[in-house]
Amino acid sequence: MTTIAPNDKKIDEEISSEAEDHQDHRLFGLLAFLVADGMTFAGFFAAYLTFKAVNPLPSDALYELELPLPTLNTVLLLVSSATFHRAGQALRRNESKSCQNWLITTAILGLAFLASQMFEYFTLPFGLTDNLYASTFYALTGFHGLHVTLGTLMILIVWWQARSPGGRITSQNLFPLEATELYWHFVDGIWVILFIILYLL
């Protein structure tokens, strides 16, 4: 993920010297990376669905996933996507203060998601190695959780950098914020799919 190293001035200049009509390719690079990352999830989803279709569990090993907590999680993430969007808008309007507020709200929502996920882990009636579903459940949610953790860290960094004066992220240098936002929306999107496949199906 060095593509999005926020202070990569040299790359910036090199690119703008080469092709004036394309100012910055880092977002494009990130997009390609997200396609790749999405394929990892796609592989996991495909594995889970196949397991489900061909390796049915004996009925005594079945469990019902509780819905309230994951639904709350879904709401948390969806709201956080919206707040992040607001942060971006604010920065573009040069309203640094409001941008920071939206960012920190987003980060808090992300943390809340992680906390609630942790809580779910500790209250679930099954462990990692109990059976195939249990393992796949933890692998999928865990891998997604890692993404959320990374995303939250990135948001916190962006927030730190956006604190004027002296911060690097301004309406002139939007890239770090835009990249993080793109990534965050991606992570949310994955969660929605995950929620449908894992909890609703």
């Binding site: 060095t2 990569d8 790359i11 090199e14 690119i15 010297s17 092709a19 690079g29």
Partner: peptide, 9 residues
């Protein structure tokens, strides 16, 4: 071009 899009990467 004079180099790849992301030389460091």
């Amino acid at each position: 071009a004079r180099d790849m899009a992301f030389p460091r990467l």
